[in-house]
Design a protein around this nucleic acid. Structure first.
Lengths: 250, 250
DNA sequence: CGGCGAGTTGATCATAGTCAAGATCTGTGG
DNA sequence: CCACAGATCTTGACTATGATCAACTCGCCG
């Protein structure tokens, strides 16, 4: 899918728009060279495309360059739980890389631009570029952190707290990668997606958003979120504002 | 804490009782030698000891050799969510190894026997033994898998389903490492712990256990679980019986 | 203009939470 | 060995949060 001779040019291009964001760590040339080898191509997907599916073993791994997706699981009767939101810089497919199969699905909620790696080369990465292997573990630890936060949100917070928390975190992450401004954000997800993330019904999610609107804290209309009172939102969410942390990008 | 000269003997002893279990992958001698170097000692803890604490950065990482613990998070007002149950073979402290701090706490629910590693040597592991680095990612992917299952359980299953699911999984894991028999298990956790894991109140958890008892599916009395009808339990949990998979042990 | 996906709102219902009291178990000291 | 205290488990009565059902609006696109 690519020729070695051109790698010098491509190296600087790998995940180019993302690598310029200040929240991502710089990599050494040798590591970028390796990633160029590891990379099998780029993929552009439509909204609603399936990226990986629960129970299957994708031959590919992905780094998200642009767009947004949801990770989710479903029960046999159709009940769905959104496990997490996927934004640029996120790595998709670790489970299928190390285990037999994925244990959740990932679906694109906007048009997406992905960097594609070959699952078969995955172990090479640990052999040849230990720093990159370490980075994979870093990303996995971050995912574990998000999942833990998500779990206490669904298990122990009220509907109002859940929404405030989820929107704070999502907004912060989106801002870090340049997908949102200080006060506004174009929502790639529907209220149904949010309800499925928070373990609430759509109706109750909507009513709770209504309460936040009445409280003049935030509004979510026409796929657009406006945060009117960030302090209050953080207070309801029981969160401190945190500066973005430097993170690796594979 | 240990002398190099004795490593040949210790190598065969590292995590000895665990390494004999059929569910753990064998390691190469070179890898075992490395682990001996990496290891700084063993730790015996009392019940109710804190192993790591949310918001702090432990200088140590651990592999559980014996005993059981809970991973949990708390909100400021005391609400608690159990993120997961920790059993022998599990690795504790990945977050503090790669990030600044732990994002959850881990507390011993029985007396415990831990293998202790030094956080500072962690990156060495990726440099010198890529297979072990890969194994860390494997364990992280497994944890992510458990957390995803846990999340759909708390977010979308009824109280009865939650209990059935949690007990099936816990029993299966305990059996894999020799802590339970086919039909019984000594519970290291209280019903309060289980309630906090499932996002339920203690009272409702107890009443739901009462229903399972009346249905002749299982009983949980005096720290002991008896499974009377495994098929029905799996059915309520919407689970298939799965054979234990081979997994790495660090 | 019509149809569909998404969002909004009200009415009613049910699951699970809270409060309260008592039973049982476990470990400790006399 | 027993008595006691604290932790854990059990059960009933009442409450509340959020689910379900239903109808309607809005914006968008063919």
């Amino acid at each position: 899918m690519r020729k070695n001779g051109t790698s010098r040019i491509r190296v600087t291009c790998h995940a180019c728009p993302l690598r310029l964001k200040p929240c991502f760590e710089r990599l050494e040339d040798a590591e970028l060279d390796f990633l160029e080898q590891f990379k099998t191509g780029e993929l552009f997907l439509e909204r609603d495309s399936q990226i990986v599916s629960e129970g299957t073993s994708s031959p590919h791994l992905f780094t998200v360059l642009e767009g947004a997706a949801v990770r989710y699981k479903t029960l046999e009767d159709g009940r769905r739980q959104v496990i997490g939101f996927v934004l640029p810089g996120d790595f998709v497919g670790l489970q299928s890389a190390v285990m037999e199969e994925m244990h959740h699905s990932v679906a694109a909620m906007t048009a997406m631009h992905l960097c594609v790696f070959n699952r078969n080369d995955f172990y090479q990465l640990y052999r040849e570029q230990p720093k990159l292997g370490y980075n994979i573990s870093w990303l996995a630890a971050r995912e574990e952190h998000f999942l833990g936060d998500h779990l206490i949100t669904v298990g122990r917070r009220s509907a109002l707290e859940r929404l405030a928390f989820a929107i704070c975190r999502l907004h912060q992450r989106a801002r870090d990668v340049g997908m949102a401004t200080e006060r506004t954000m174009d929502m790639p997800f529907t209220q149904q997606d949010m309800a499925d993330a928070l373990g609430l019904s759509l109706v109750h999610t909507n009513k709770t958003l209504g309460r936040l609107r009445t409280m003049q804290v935030m509004s979510w209309h026409a796929r657009r979120i406006e945060i009117h009172d960030r302090g209050k939102l953080l207070e309801i969410a029981n969160l401190e504002p945190e500066p973005p942390t430097l993170r690796p990008l594979i």
